[in-house]
Design a binder for these strands. Structure first.
Lengths: 235, 235
DNA sequence: TCATCAAGTATTGTTAACAATTATTGTTAT
DNA sequence: ATAACAATAATTGTTAACAATACTTGATGA
């Protein structure tokens, strides 16, 4: 979305409203303020972002292509609600991709990268202590996205961005009440393993981390919240 | 794109023009009739497909989200031209994903699946014998997509669809003149290995297959063709 | 009371006209 | 001849009005 060739100031300004909508929706989903199934009305969004419906529709079309939003003809746009089967596929895809990231990260992580991740973990722990779940979720996702950035493969990074976002939706639907996503000590141990430089053990650790997350799902009941769109987007 | 929940006849009809455009462009790229850098004019497409510009723009926006098309503000839509660095990333992503597919395929391939793949290989060989390169390229891509279908993970299948398409563009830009993509005997050996049921060896074989393909690239010169859009889309 | 149906409202989908920007062509001056 | 500039043409971007569809509300009848 942001890797257009020959980018200049005027070009990036040309899609400002569209990008603002996209980013706002992605962030809101990553913090579980926009739960699965939320309706995204065109008028509503064009009012909120003070742009015309054409921009809104471009943003929604792009999000639909990433399977974050579902477009139902004559009905509108909705945040996708992953099925249990899709959840399984998302987790398998994550294990697949993060395995390769792990191998790359061991070879490429710098001291600054390690420090950044340690700091991320501290902030995540703080958010958990503060019971700030949106922030905790966003930081947890950022930890995994950091692995992708370090690994230096923008294709896999984009795939993982989609998968982690859908993971957040899956957790919102099916995660047992007590557990709140990734266990922070597991993130810590992952960084330990990156420092130690044993890529095989790192792969196992991340694989186990993701399997642990998936094992915590309970497909028997779902959850729901009721906030206005403006509150959820926090504009 | 085609896995919308609650689909009914009227719904699928509602996006008929958009899907026709998308499919036509995807097929044209997969057969190298639309090379990297091709301009996709809005008027041009709305004339060809007899629809309004709004449908065209939805299709182009969706293709841009899959990194098949690049949208340059005030300039229009173009088929992406992968850089050497992007080529490396695409191949690493393919190895990552097809490794998982290989393990799944060994566990899940039925006799019908094997027969289908053998037939695909025969047709591909025939296309090569006939010097029908577009058909050969499309069939070669379909072979890999068949692995994804058998493996039963629609997320990875969609990712691979994008990656194989970008691979076709990469081959069109950087592949040495003589070689024309995947060697068919390697596809044959892959099916042999699926039948034998040794997933580790299958993984190695597919990994080698992809590395072999990547090794055939030559980033020093590029190629170009000049056909009208109507000819390239073959409408 | 509940289900069914109809009218009205709101939302999405389509179309066309207009504005802004870029590409092209032709001219002029060096 | 070539480079720089101006006028023209073509393309993309924006907006608004209208059409079609879906949703909501209230009335009617069993």
């Amino acid at each position: 979305m942001s890797d257009v060739s020959h980018e200049n100031p005027k070009d990036s300004a040309a899609r400002a409203p569209e990008d603002a909508i996209t980013q706002s929706i992605l962030t809101a989903v990553s913090e579980q303020r926009l739960p699965a199934g939320s309706k995204l009305g065109e008028q509503q969004l064009s009012d909120l972002f003070k742009c015309n419906r054409a921009n809104v529709r471009r943003a929604l079309t792009a999000l639909a292509a990433q399977h974050v939003v579902e477009l139902r003809p004559n009905r509108g746009a909705f945040i996708v609600t992953p099925s249990p089967e899709e959840a399984r596929e998302v987790f398998e895809a994550r294990r697949t991709i993060e395995r390769t990231l792990a191998r790359n990260v061991v070879a490429r992580a710098s001291a600054e990268d390690i420090a950044y991740m340690r700091n991320n973990i501290v902030q995540e722990a703080q958010a958990r202590a503060d019971n700030d779940k949106p922030r905790e979720l966003r930081l947890s996702r950022m930890f995994h996205m950091q692995l992708a950035k370090i690994s230096g493969n923008r294709v896999l990074e984009r795939f993982l961005a989609e998968l982690t976002l859908r993971t957040t939706l899956i957790l919102g639907l099916y995660n047992a009440a007590g557990t709140s996503g990734c266990a922070e000590d597991e993130h810590d141990r992952i960084v330990d393993q990156i420092e130690s430089g044993d890529s095989d053990r790192l792969v196992s650790l991340i694989d186990a981390h993701l399997r642990h997350l998936e094992a915590g799902l309970d497909f028997r009941r779902t959850r729901n919240r009721n906030l206005t769109l403006a509150e959820q987007l926090a504009i």
